[in-house]
Design a protein around this nucleic acid. Sequence first.
RNA 1: GGCGACGUGGCCGACUGGCUAGGCACGGGCCUGCAAAGCCCUUUAAUCGGGUUCGAUUCCCGACGUCGCCUCCA
Length: 450
Amino acid sequence: MFALYDTLTREIKTLEMREPGKLGVYLCGPTVYGPPHLGHGRATLVYDILRRYLEWRGIAVRLVSNITDIDDKIIDRANREGRPWQDITHKCESVWFDAMERLGVQRPSDVPHATEYVEQMVRMIGNLVDRGSAYATNDGVYLSVETVPDYGALAHQSIDEMLAGGGDRGVLGAQEKRHPADFALWKFSKPGEPSWPSPWGEGRPGWHSECVVMSLELLGEGFDLHCGGADLRFPHHENERAQAVALGKRFARHWMHNGFVVDAEGEKMSKSLGNVTNLLDLLDRYDARAYRMLLLQTHYRSPVKVGQDNIDASVNALAGLDSFAARSAGLVGRPDEATLARFKELMDDDLDTPNAMAHVFDTTRRANTALDSGDAAGAGLVAAVHEMCGALGLVLGSAVEVDDDAQAKAAALDAARLVKDFATADALRIELQNAGWVVETTKSGTTLRR
RNA sequence: GGCGACGUGGCCGACUGGCUAGGCACGGGCCUGCAAAGCCCUUUAAUCGGGUUCGAUUCCCGACGUCGCCUCCA
């Protein structure tokens, strides 16, 4: 039984599936107006790990993740740079999926775009107005949070409590709102801005409406899991939920939120703080697997510090596993059952990847010991390590092909050692190392990796 | 002000009321022609003050500190 912490009930509970064996997941995707940052990388990696693990467990996962391709920030940037807004959204989306590919994050099963669902959103807003839960003002259409009895359920705070403190932050939006917490479902457009027709006037949808419409449309009422970064819990997810409740529809059964990426001082990375690190920089500078490794060694709900030291440690940890993969490459066997059972036990407990990784490292050590002593149990352990890493999306071994020249030198090195011509052997090793290869000379021959 | 999270060894980072997390780094050893990789060993940590308990890093209370949310944000 796979259990996850549920943000709504604040407890770890079994992930109930509407249809056993099939999991429908909705993940709030990016607003495409800039390059992806480390926070995006964490969220997508966490849910990629979740997805791969559950699929490995035999569950058919349908992951729907949207692209927000209409939004104030997109319009702002288009105006600032004097180019068509679609220019920006198309470019950013392709950069996004490039980065995801480099991270080894599988493409979602469905990638709905907000602009493809405007008609459906208009219909939904119409429903909300008809039901008395939404109203038009002179700048848009708003949801009346007071018509949603349990508004604040995800934030775990009542409207009053939220307003009581909120303090110095000014209330955003129209003065005409009936309640300060009411949020925009539809924003009327200014001349020259992208717009769609609606019964209330030309405009564009508010951010919180697209995900309700698209998740319900593609996954249906009462879908299994809704997830995203902790900063989406409120207001975004709260407001999605509010709309569904106001429509009288069953929304997500389970809510999952991942923790933040923080900087060296422990502060959240945030665009407003200006301390965001570009995901693309990280990918350019390091093995893309290092970020996955770092996140695997941190619980998904804990904050994670991403810094040079951290990433270096992950790179080194990866090197150990790579060299293990290299030395055990020839071995085939059935994955050791007891080892896999333990792995499942750990992962099923709220995606406990830190302990699962500890288990992978332990298994690697046991396998290395078996390999050293020629114990036949080694093959099963080797297979188990590969099986577990596969379930976590961690690809072991260098993807780099060993070129013929290097291969020839490695063979020559072995030949020289065989006749105890160590001077030649050492010279060849240095040559290979200078060419960037990690050279491992063993009794059974020399292996090369990057 | 309201709500919440957290404070662990040189660094990162888990679990846990008593029994070695794990990774990285450092040191010693074994192995090796020498390396690399691997294996073994070593270093005895829980912000502070109370309380509960036979026993607390783990539960409760308080203090201090850090961080998050309270309508831009993964």
